[in-house]
Computed example of a mutant assay.
Amino acid sequence: SLKNPEQHEILSQLNADILVVVAYGLILPQTILEIPTYGCINVHGSELPRWRGAAPIQRAIEAGDKTTGVTIMQMDEGLDTGAMLAISRCQIDPLETSGTLYEKLAALGCKTLIETLQQLTKGTLTAVPQNDRDCSYAHKITKSETEINWTESATIIARRIRAFNPSPTCYSLIDGQRLKIWQTSTDTDNPGRGSAGEILSAGSDGLLIQCGDQSCLIIKEIQLAGKSRLPVAEILKSKADMFACGKILGV
């Protein structure tokens, strides 16, 4: 947490011009923030003030945001509340996962950070305060969120599966066994008339699952406990009975 006086002394002896923080997850004390000549800056994976906090990438996908970005901010004693030095934006693709978006933002963050450091040392940057009225908080992901609730709509479930891919990964139960779900799509042509979590069909396209709001989800890639992740079509070759029509996921 850098609150130890010895750690403070070590940083002071570096005579650093600037301190850059990326995905640190803790608030720096004011005594640390005041050490570098140009202060401490943070590379944050969202368009602040939207999605302050621990899981901005996952929460943006889960919420169905169309765009996100990287914010370079001057750190203060709050949680991602400091004045903004630069923002770079990018699209969130329809099939984006947190894994692919992380890679996209990492590259964007490196580029934006270098540009920001160059301008900061030249004195050509103006820090812009955040508007707290527009802020939202990206809460840390809990284990309870990863179990799929089939009474929710297919759109909401599909977003969460992509948001939690590759970690911590969404799952459901079948015959009491945990089933990780990696890839899905929504089926807008089939309103469905089954019970929540019911397997309506199983075939080469995947498992058609009844969700809430008379919506359906197609599960395309899964992982059984202790096994590798595979397309549903491959697993059905040896586990067809396990995924028979009429069975209910979540029990």
Rank of each mutant, 00 (worst) to 15 (best):
H8K: 10
V22N: 09
L95W: 07
R162C: 09
S98T: 06
Y171L: 05
A158C: 13
Y171T: 06
C245N: 15
Q7C: 09
L217K: 00
G206D: 00
I157D: 12
S215F: 11
G45N: 12
T97K: 03
R193I: 07
D17Q: 08
E198P: 02
K66F: 10
A154T: 12
K104D: 04
I235W: 01
Q183I: 00
G212N: 04
G212Q: 10
I18T: 13
T169F: 00
R162I: 07
I61P: 03
R52P: 07
A106I: 12
E34S: 14
W182E: 01
A163G: 10
E103M: 12
T184N: 08
H139N: 15
A138N: 01
E96Y: 03
Q130H: 08
V70L: 05
E6F: 11
G123F: 09
N42T: 10
G250N: 12
E145W: 13
L173I: 03
L48M: 09
H139R: 13
G64A: 13
R89Q: 07
I161Y: 01
P5C: 08
Y102E: 06
R52D: 06
V21K: 08
M84I: 15
S136I: 11
S167P: 00
Q119N: 12
C40S: 09
N42H: 15
L28N: 03
D187T: 01
G45V: 02
G203S: 02
D241W: 03
W150E: 03
G53E: 06
L208V: 04
T31H: 15
T81G: 06
S136G: 09
A240T: 11
T142D: 04
D132L: 09
L249Y: 08
I219N: 08
S195L: 11
I161T: 13
V251K: 06
L224Y: 03
P5L: 08
V20K: 12
E6N: 14
V22I: 14
S136W: 10
T126V: 10
V22E: 05
R160A: 01
T188A: 08
P231C: 05
P56T: 06
G194R: 03
I219G: 03
G25C: 13
I27Y: 08
S185H: 04
T37Q: 13
V232W: 02
T188K: 11
A16S: 14
N131T: 12
Y171A: 07
I114Q: 10
I219T: 13
G176S: 04
I114N: 09
P191Y: 12
A54T: 13
G192A: 13
I199P: 01
I10G: 05
T112L: 08
L217N: 04
L11C: 09
E115L: 13
A86T: 01
P231K: 09
L224S: 05
G250K: 02
